[in-house]
Amino acid sequence: MFEILKRQEMADGTVVLNEISAPMIAKKANPGQFVILKANETGERIPLTMADTNPKKGTVTIIYQVVGKSTALFKSLKVGERYQDVIGPLGKPTKLEKVGNVVCVGGGTGVAVLHPITRGLKELGNHMASIIGARTKDLLILEDKMRAASHELHVCTDDGSYGHHGFVTDVLKEILKKENIKLVVGIGPVPMMKFVCKLTEEYKVKTLVSLNAIMVDGTGMCGCCRVSVGGKTQFACVDGPEFDGHQVDFDELMQRLQAYLTEEAEAYEKHKCECKAA
């Protein structure tokens, strides 16, 4: 179980795709849900959203950005090798409904999380305008897939190397001004989600976000993933990961994501040294 059947590097090798054999999870998973993976005996439990699933083949696909020790370790796994543990599907699935005009906004690897949701919403007959962004052209992922899953696709880069020069929120604002939008789904780095929500609040458009709180078990047993939503504490792993973005305390989430900054740096440095030595 949990053998890697396919591996692909994207965005200049900063993002990696793995297709993993996990038949029971593939059969059960819905858009918006995640898995927790552990590479080996000493590994950490890392939550990643399923970017795709293939129930017939019995596989789930994850797309992750290499940001620290654990994701670097994942990157080193080759086709034919295995994850020691994969647990899921976890979290609540996205409530996919027909509402009319929808805008999906994705930044960074958030686009991977956004893609199955966009596709699902389109299949239900919604009109999908999507906006995806990255720092620069080479870091953009899943452009073709997002194009296929949307009626219109807008691409933004912070440095102007491709598409619109600027932030996804600029384009979102133009759309909100012109059209009667019923729902916005925003998934990406926390600051991006925060600004998307600020904007949609002005236009009073319901907005869903997917929160990437730090997790351990993913089953509501530890409370590590707690987030403040509407002034109440919720567990992102079981009550979410998707929430009404207008209720989320993004500043608290941003702080809590920094909880292990020192330890993470230490682990990553050690890992890099070991890789060099090997």
Partner: peptide
């Protein structure tokens, strides 16, 4: 306590950084 003890015991965080969980 669940989180603290799970990190320490199950994930062996007391052996960090040999074990990855902080």
């Amino acid at each position: 306590a669940n989180e603290y003890l799970t990190r320490a015991n199950l994930m062996k965080a007391y052996l960090f950084p040999e074990y990855d969980t902080p």
